[in-house]
Computed example of a mutant assay.
Amino acid sequence: MDGLLIDSEDKYTMITNEVLEMYGKPKLPWSIKAQLQGRPQPEASKIFHDWAKLPITPEETAVKQLSLQQKYFPQCSPLPGVPTLLDNLVSTQSTNQPVHIALATSSHSKNFELKSGHLKELFKAFSEPHRVLGDDPRIGKGRGKPLPDIYLLALETINEDLRKKGEAEIKPEECLVFEDAVPGVEAGRRAGMQVVWVPHPGLLEAYKGREGEVLAGRTGAHKEEEKTAAEKEAEELQSSRVQGAGQPGEIGDGFGQILSTLEDFPYARYGIQLP
C-alpha cells in the first residue's frame, strides 16, 4: 500500500524530516529510508534511531510522529495509474480468467484507517477478508516483511474462498506481488511469487547497479545470521508447507520486473485478459 498504491511514503519522509529538523539533524537520506520501507514499525524504529541518534527516546519520537501523522495521513492520494489498475483487475471477475486480489501491508489498523479512510472508493477493490494488515494476529511476532508470511497469508485468504467454491487453489508461483520497497520485494520472492518492483526514483538511485539483487530478493534485507532459533524453526515449517517458500530467487530468473509507474500496466505480459 504505502508508496505503491498511495503517496504515504512521501508523507512518512515529510514527517520524519520535521522531527529531525527539531533537533538540528540532517534530512533522512535514501540509504536509510530504503531500510525503513515496508518493515514493521519496531524494526524500522530501531534502524532509524541507530542512525539518527536523537536526544529523545524512541517512545518520545513516536509521540511526535503520531501527532504529525494525524495531520498528514488523511491527505494521502492514489499514485499514478493505481485507480485504473485496480478497476481493471476487478473487472476480470466477469471473465473466465478472473484475477483475485488481496492487500498485504505492514501498516497497522489505525494507520491504515488514517491513510485510507477518505479513499473508500479506491480500497473497495479489496474486500475485508482479503486485507492483511501489519497487526493481523495470524502473522507471528517478528514475522513481518522481509519474511514471506504476510504474502502467504494474503494468498491463503484467496484460496480459502476458492476452496469453498470447489475451485482450484492458486499456487505461489501463479501470484504477482506489487511492491515499492526492497524488504517487500524480498518478502514476495521468499513467498515463491513473481514481483513487480515500482520504486521511488530516489530508492532506485540508492540501489543503482544492484537491481538484479533486489528483484531476486538477495539484498540481505533479512540476514540469516540475525535470525533466532525460533525464527529459523518457523521459517523451516513454513517452507515445508509451501514449496520454495522462505528462499529468495535467483538473479535473472525472470520472476522480478521493474516498472517506473503503474500507468499503462503491461497486462498481457502476465497473461491478464481484460474484458
Rank of each mutant, 00 (worst) to 15 (best):
L274A: 09
F255V: 12
D264L: 07
T105V: 04
E60G: 01
D7S: 05
I258E: 11
G142T: 02
E186W: 06
L133A: 11
I6A: 06
M14V: 10
S106H: 02
L20N: 04
L103D: 03
R190N: 10
K110F: 14
A44D: 08
P201Q: 11
P58W: 01
S67H: 13
H130F: 06
K120R: 15
I15D: 01
G246C: 07
A62N: 10
P78I: 08
L119N: 07
L237W: 11
Y267V: 11
V214L: 09
P146I: 03
P58F: 00
V177K: 03
R210N: 14
I272M: 12
G252A: 10
K227Q: 15
K11E: 09
L122K: 09
I258K: 14
G117F: 01
H108C: 13
R269C: 15
T61N: 08
L103Q: 02
H118L: 05
G184Q: 02
V90Q: 09
K232C: 07
E235D: 14
R218H: 05
E174R: 15
L152S: 04
V177E: 02
P275H: 00
S116Q: 11
Y267T: 10
E59T: 11
D180T: 05
A154W: 01
W30S: 07
E211N: 12
T57E: 08
A52W: 04
E235V: 09
A187F: 08
G244W: 12
L20Q: 05
P74K: 10
L155K: 06
P183C: 12
G192H: 09
S239L: 07
